[in-house]
Amino acid sequence: MTSIQVNAPIRNLLQNEGRAKARDPLPRLLAQLIARAGGEVMVERAASRPWASALFQGRRHVIALTIAGPDAAERRAAFAEGIEEAEWSLSGHFVADIGIDSSRPAPGGEWMELSALTIEDW
């Protein structure tokens, strides 16, 4: 299981940012999800695997986040509102589908699990 506590700049997530086409857009997507959540956020789990159809190839992502703090419920609601229509900036990829699969209160915050499908942008 992968987890990171995010209270500082997220530069280390973006090691591939300068490349024209990163193989896995997960680090950039995580950085944008963390920024969207604001405040104290912990990535409990982040996994990515290849995905393909007859016409497209990309990656399927599963991400579990905990939003912490006294305002966690309000931040979770703001995070979730409009996430399906949100614009994401992923070098060489685009988000074809994203949604919150599950959420619940957690000790000191709110836990949620998201899934996303990114497609290579030719």
Rank of each mutant, 00 (worst) to 15 (best):
P107C: 00
F94E: 13
A72W: 01
S53L: 08
V41E: 02
R11L: 10
E85G: 08
P9E: 02
R45V: 05
S3W: 11
R19M: 12
V62L: 10
E110K: 02
L55T: 13
S103A: 15
L55C: 01
S48P: 07
G108T: 10
R28S: 15
S103L: 15
Q15A: 14
I4F: 11
A73Q: 14
I98K: 04
G92K: 04
G109V: 04
V95H: 03
L14G: 07
E84V: 05
S103H: 14
V62F: 03
P25L: 01
R28H: 10
E113F: 00
L26H: 00
A37F: 05
L14S: 05
L13G: 11
S102Q: 13
D97G: 01
I10M: 06
I100R: 06
A68C: 00
I98S: 08
N12M: 07
K21E: 13
L13V: 10
P9H: 10
E85V: 08
I119S: 03
R19C: 05
S53P: 12
G92N: 11
E113P: 02
A86N: 09
M42E: 15
E74S: 13
V62R: 15
W88Q: 09
P105H: 03
D24A: 10
D101H: 00
T2W: 06
E40Y: 00
A72I: 04
L26C: 04
R36W: 08
W88N: 06
W111L: 10
G69P: 11
L65K: 09
A52S: 15
R76H: 14
L14Q: 12
G99T: 01
A20W: 09
G109Y: 00
V62A: 15
A54C: 01
D97T: 01
A68E: 12
G92I: 10
R23Y: 03
M112T: 11
G82I: 04
Q5N: 11
N12F: 06
D24L: 04
I10K: 06
S48D: 05
S3G: 12
A68K: 09
E44S: 13
N12L: 10
S91C: 02
S53Y: 03
P107N: 14
Q5P: 02
L30P: 08
E87H: 12
D24W: 02
G58Y: 02
M1T: 14
L29S: 07
I98Y: 01
H93I: 09
L13M: 12
D71S: 13
G92S: 11
G99D: 06
A52Q: 15
G108E: 05
A46L: 08
L33T: 08
R49F: 03
L13Y: 04
V41S: 01
T118P: 09
G109E: 01
A96C: 01
I10G: 01
E44I: 07
G69E: 08
G39M: 07
R45P: 00
V41D: 02
I100F: 00
P107R: 14
A72C: 06
E44M: 12
P105N: 10
S91V: 05
A8F: 12
I100K: 04
T66G: 02
E74D: 15
A106N: 07
W51G: 03
L29H: 09
N7V: 04
R19S: 14
S48T: 05
I63P: 06
G109W: 01
Q32W: 07
G38I: 10
R49C: 07
I100V: 15
H61Q: 08
S3C: 00
R60T: 02
V62M: 07
V41F: 00
P25Y: 02
A31N: 09
A78V: 04
E40D: 13
E85S: 14
